[in-house]
Amino acid sequence: MPYARGLAEYLELCEQESVDPTRATRAHVALHVRELGSRPSRRGVNVVALDSGAGLSNATIQQRLVSVRMFYDFLVEEGLRQDNPVGRGRYTPGPRGGGQRRGLVRRLVKLPWIPSDQQWRRVLAVAADEPVRTRLMLALAYDAALRREELCSLRTDDLDPGRRLVRVRAETTNSRRERVVPYSAATGVLLTQYLVHRATVSRARGGLFLSESRRNFAQPLSLWTSSKVVRRIAVEAGVERFSTHTTRHLCLTDLARMGWEVHAIATFAGHRHTDSAMRYIHLSARDLAERFARGMEQIHAQRVALLSAGAEGAGGRR
């Protein structure tokens, strides 16, 4: 577990520094952050970006700090400490009386990675030779922008083949909000094929995607197995950044490219707020491209008009 690992690493540092974790100060936590940000990278020493050659990524450091913060929250709750050395930021006065809270590590917000058209075709070429279960999982994950947990938790009664709708139950989502989203006709064909195959594994209602391994035969497919399958496809296709979440990112970006409004994208994705959906608008560069085109069209027209006026003036002088 990442959180357990994060706490274990912090406790190891305290042991190395001969510091009792229950009495550690903010300086000790800062030392831990410094170590996380400078430790040698497994990818080599050729640093071309902050998180490309040395140290953990910003998101990973944030995750490591969460486990340490929760540890001290527990100590404070139990009365073993008076304060939390990690904290949740400090107030910084703003120019108009407002302000912001800055954490121990400044959070960097990056756009999600999506494959190029060529990389996507390579993934699809490899997936074409996969069993129908794997092909259906990839198709549904893309069509309905499903997270890995949402996909693997689907049940047979969550699907409405007649209307080509899938229900994502609230307990399987991050926002704890249920939603119903459509899927394509091509995915519907794959679903029909898979249901015929699934009947040879089990006719019982329940989990849609079933394991066919000897150890867990006819049991719901685990998240770990799903990740392993996608990882194998990514490696074979030579697109190693492709993951179980990539199809969701790609779908939402494609919706933004097609002109969907941010509120519609947020509803489709199951986001509580539009801020998360805005990433895909930015990633698609739809608004920027449209504004750029409109702006350039106006500038172009003005420049041509000036040239035309210049030509008429020159003709009159002749």
Rank of each mutant, 00 (worst) to 15 (best):
N58S: 07
Y194C: 12
R241L: 15
R96W: 03
T172M: 12
R101D: 08
T225F: 03
R248T: 03
T225K: 09
T187Y: 11
D73W: 00
A293C: 12
R318H: 11
M1K: 11
R39K: 13
A289C: 04
R177E: 15
S227W: 14
N84Y: 01
T60E: 04
V109Y: 14
E171R: 12
Y72S: 11
D158E: 05
S308K: 14
A4Q: 15
G94I: 06
R241E: 15
A277Q: 04
V230H: 07
L50D: 14
S213N: 03
G207I: 08
R133M: 14
G44T: 05
V123K: 09
M278W: 14
V105R: 07
T253I: 02
V168L: 05
M70W: 11
R198Q: 05
Q193Y: 01
P21Y: 08
V132S: 06
L255V: 07
L136A: 06
Y194H: 07
F71H: 07
A141C: 06
W260I: 03
T172E: 09
V105T: 10
P85V: 01
R257E: 13
A309D: 08
E77Y: 02
D254W: 09
Q298E: 10
R88D: 07
F74E: 14
A185V: 15
Q100L: 15
P21R: 04
S38I: 05
P131I: 00
G238P: 11
L56Y: 15
E290T: 05
Y183Q: 06
L31F: 06
L50Q: 14
V181I: 10
Q62Y: 03
S184A: 14
L13G: 03
F209A: 02
R101E: 14
L210D: 03
